[in-house]
Computed example of a mutant assay.
Amino acid sequence: MNLRLLPISLLMALAACSNATPADPPLAGARIGGPFQLIDQDGKAITDKAFAGKYRIMYFGYTYCPDVCPTTAQTIGAAMRLLDKSDPAVSAKVVPVFVTVDPERDTPAVVKQFVRAFYPRFVGLTGSVAAIDSVKTEYGVFASKGKTTPNGGYLVEHSNAAYLMDGDGRPLVLLPTEQGAQATANEIKRWVKTNT
């Protein structure tokens, strides 16, 4: 087959269907991630340095979210459980991290209850509004508080992305959480190196 005669779109489709891991991760070089100073689910100050050497899943949401955030957190937790069984060496190198975009309501205690519902090693992070705004900027996360209802409640519109970051805090790939736990676990396995 003469590949020079195939249309570029067909070549791209063939490449997309390949199971081979590309040499460079899809998000290599993207300006996603950076230093942060937040509070963990136990009320302790924590920085990005606490995760040095560990792959991490960075997911941004909020605990009062009626549907998207619990579904995505559940998928991440289920993917980690799959890896616990099938590839414990991979699982041991990954820390799932939930960062709230609603720090006014998501206290450490509230975040702790949320993350523990999905996976025991899920780390929950909150902080001041300024600290959360800073980390949202670093990770390119959109979040906007909606109108307050008469009972004082509100929704937060936000982007729904789970980033897999390497041990140096560099972005690797967006995890396909919308495709379910197995697809998410497979993508984690594709990029996490256990021989380093």
Rank of each mutant, 00 (worst) to 15 (best):
N2A: 05
L3Y: 10
L3I: 07
L5R: 14
L6R: 14
L6K: 13
P7C: 05
P7L: 12
I8H: 11
L10V: 13
A13Y: 01
A15F: 11
A20I: 08
T21L: 11
T21C: 08
P22G: 12
P22L: 10
P22H: 11
A23Q: 12
D24Q: 14
P25T: 11
P25G: 06
P26S: 06
L27T: 06
A28L: 10
R31G: 12
I32R: 06
I32E: 05
I32D: 03
G33V: 10
G34Q: 08
G34T: 07
G34N: 08
Q37N: 14
I39M: 11
D42R: 13
I46P: 01
D48C: 08
K49E: 15
F51C: 04
G53Y: 10
K54H: 13
R56M: 12
I57D: 04
I57A: 04
M58Y: 09
F60D: 02
Y64V: 02
P66S: 11
D67T: 05
V68P: 06
P70M: 08
I76Q: 00
G77F: 05
G77R: 03
G77Q: 02
A78W: 01
M80P: 00
R81W: 00
L83R: 01
D87E: 15
P88M: 15
V90G: 06
S91L: 07
S91H: 13
A92D: 14
V94W: 10
V95T: 15
P96E: 12
V99I: 15
V101M: 06
P103R: 04
R105E: 00
D106T: 03
D106Y: 01
P108Q: 11
V110G: 04
Q113E: 15
V115H: 08
F118G: 04
F118V: 03
Y119E: 11
Y119P: 00
V123R: 09
V123K: 02
V123L: 07
L125G: 00
T126L: 04
V129A: 15
A131Y: 01
A131Q: 12
S134G: 03
S134L: 08
K136Y: 04
V141D: 00
F142Q: 05
K145Y: 05
T148P: 05
T149E: 14
G152T: 05
L155A: 12
L155R: 05
A162G: 02
Y163P: 03
Y163Q: 02
M165G: 05
M165A: 08
M165I: 09
D166S: 01
D166V: 03
D168M: 07
D168N: 15
R170M: 10
V173G: 03
L174G: 05
L174Q: 09
L174T: 10
L175C: 03
L175Y: 04
P176M: 05
E178C: 06
E178S: 15
G180Y: 12
A181V: 06
Q182L: 13
A183S: 10
E187G: 03
E187L: 09
I188A: 04
I188E: 04
K189I: 09
K193M: 11
T194H: 13
T196K: 15
